[in-house]
Amino acid sequence: MTKGTIEISNLVKKFKDDFIAVDGISLHVNRGQCYAFLGPNGAGKTTAIKILTTLSEPTSGLVKVSGFDVKKEPEKVRWEIGVVLQDTGLDQDLTGREILELQARLFHMTRKQAKERTSKLLEMVGLTKDANRQIKKFSGGMRRRLDLAATLVHEPTILFLDEPTTGLDPLNRKAIWNEIRRLNREEGVTVFLTTQYLEEADELADYISIINRGKLVASGTADELKDSIGADLITFEFADDQIAGSAARMLKNSGGIEHQGSRVTLTIQEATKRLPMLMEKLTRAGIQINELDISSPTLDDVFIRVTGEKEEGA
């Protein structure tokens, strides 16, 4: 079964002005996975998602969504996917109920089916009470929830979300996260999201690809990516400069060492596992440790390492 899967091989998107927005991307998304595309502004995230959602055509390469070729069978792809893009919106003059019923009718439901589906969706995103108000009177968070409901009208197997929580306050962000997680875990909907928030990728995705200048520069689970940075940091604080000096000499074979005043910083693989051995070594030599701190690399570190750029916005 290919339903709910995404298959991309050697995708290239070159614009008329010769700008190459996507430069040879290949990836595979399994059914029920939550896949995050992480990258700075202008990395090619939106272009890629537009191709996946049939709004744009690939220049070369093969893209299959739920087993259908986006280039040859865009209509079939549209039945499989729900899409929230940054540049999709809703008719602000209609009410929440009207827009959902209209959406359902355009997906070939009868009037009765459309009404039933609408009530169910409104309840799901918690907008039943406000359903008969015009969308222009909705708050940003309510709009985002309605937008999500509108994409779920035809029960898609894959949900595409382009920066789903950009510009939302923490409370609304949590609400959207919960809904995405529920759809993914309980209803088995495959989720493909782009984000520039590392926290969001860390929170939601079970697989992350980092994209920069149209190329995938790193892929893996959040933990794998963090591990790929190579090492943790252990910071020791000693009584004085001299003791720190002799500790640094003893530890220099265990990893990268940096000695500054009474402080010694050690860059080392699997710090927690090897720490007892290091402490034993120091204690045996009669060196007392005043303070100790271990830190693991964050996704930020990975991101900065592979993109060579500072993250914007978060």
């Binding site: 709004l55 996917i81 893009l85 540049d87 008719d91 070939h108």
Partner: peptide, 17 residues
């Protein structure tokens, strides 16, 4: 034009309309 600016046009293009 209203639909193009609000993004509803893009949303309609996503349906089998």
């Amino acid at each position: 034009v209203r639909d193009l600016e609000s993004g509803y046009f893009a949303r309609l293009l996503q349906t089998p309309v």
